[in-house]
Simulated assay, not measured.
Amino acid sequence: MQEKIIILDFGSQTTQLIGRRVRELDTYCEIVPYNKFPKEDPTIKGVILSGSPFSVYDKDAFKVDLSEIRGKYPILGICYGAQFMSYTNGGKVEPAGTREYGRAHLASFCKDNVLFKGVRDCSQVWMSHGDTITAIPDNFKKIASTDKVEIAAYQIEGEQVWGVQFHPEVFHSEDGTQILKNFVVDVCSCKQDWSPASFIESTVAELKAQLGDDKVVLGLSGGVDSSVAAVLLNKAIGKNLTCIFVDHGMLRKNEFKNVMADYECLGLNVIGVDASEKFFNELAGVTEPERKRKIIGKGFIDVFDVEAHKIKDVKWLAQGTIYPDCIESLSITGT
């Protein structure tokens, strides 16, 4: 089973970037909502807490009980994640007066701390926060400062738990990747053996195990997302996958014919449906863009549903989409 780092998403706009940086270290990671930690997963090697648009003392701030995680996995809190751990353990987080946004430099840091192995003197880091940690609990140890932020990083004494108020994931943090590597590799002991190729192998194996001899139907758009999903499923279950490609008349000239030929070359079992006249009739006289979108969306579902019901004994409906859409489909607010 593929080992992984879990990123708990507290709503930061750079959460996806944290995930990218971890994967660039040849380590698999998954981003999940802050309150959806996957319990009892033996492949988890460590946890990263993201930033957030909220202050820790806001009534709407995202909060979670970390007691089941702390002590079981190494933890790295970034920005809000660092403030949240300090605040909920008795530390103080206060408004910084003016929002600190931009470059800063590590004026001092504990060079013997594993998190800062290989980090250069006065290394540039990127700050983006309106609050700052002004006091840490007694069992927390300050391990870094900048010229403006006294507690730029800390470690809980006797524990594999760190917090940094800067963003190591962004390009402007010069040694940010090194800091993340120190956590992911040196602390969490990840082997750096993951790659997109290994992801394909593991995904196909998981699909085979999950689906067995079941039949699956998938709606194709002609785009990359659904096509990749179809290819992966085809590798796993072959003829038990049936794809439906609906031409709604909005494709480029000859695109339906050309894409169908491409799917044939990929060995996919595809039913092509030319429903362009249906869509043209329903869109006639409609000028409002949002109404057009809804007509096309409903029309696709209607056509797909009719064709899908012609296939016997289907147990699964497959969908291909991009990873950020998976996060948005299960938002951190639960809506």
Rank of each mutant, 00 (worst) to 15 (best):
V47Q: 08
L268R: 06
Y28I: 03
S202R: 15
E328P: 10
D193E: 15
A61T: 13
V47F: 09
I244C: 09
L220R: 01
R99Q: 14
S123I: 01
I44V: 03
S331F: 05
L106A: 05
D121E: 10
T203G: 06
I75V: 15
K312Y: 04
T134R: 09
V125Q: 12
I332F: 13
T335W: 02
G272W: 00
L66W: 01
K63W: 06
M250W: 14
A61P: 13
T287F: 07
G219I: 09
F84P: 10
D112L: 05
V164I: 14
P196G: 06
S329C: 03
N35L: 00
F10I: 02
K312V: 06
V56R: 14
I244E: 05
N234K: 15
V22I: 14
I244S: 06
S50Y: 07
T14M: 08
V22Q: 11
E206H: 15
M250P: 15
I44E: 02
I311A: 07
N89D: 15
C265E: 15
V185E: 14
K36D: 11
Q178M: 05
K257R: 14
T132M: 08
C110P: 00
L233E: 06
I78K: 10
D60V: 04
M85I: 09
K191Q: 09
Y28Q: 05
H129N: 15
K111V: 12
V270E: 02
A82D: 03
E264I: 04
P42Q: 14
G320W: 07
R23H: 10
G158K: 03
V32G: 02
S108V: 08
E150T: 11
T14P: 01
G212N: 06
R252T: 01
V161C: 07
T287E: 13
V161P: 01
A152W: 11
K142W: 12
G91A: 08
Y101Q: 04
F304C: 06
E255V: 00
V303E: 10
N113L: 05
Y87H: 13
G212H: 08
V125F: 12
P289F: 01
T333E: 13
E201Y: 10
I7E: 06
G11C: 13
D65P: 08
G11M: 13
D214K: 15
Q165V: 04
L25V: 07
L66P: 00
V185F: 10
A209N: 10
R21W: 04
A144K: 03
F109Q: 07
V64K: 02
K253Q: 10
I296D: 08
Y263I: 12
V306T: 07
P38D: 14
L76T: 05
I31E: 07
D313S: 07
F256D: 11
D121F: 01
A82I: 11
I48S: 07
K181L: 12
C79G: 01
S55Q: 13
V161H: 03
P168A: 00
V246E: 02
E169K: 06
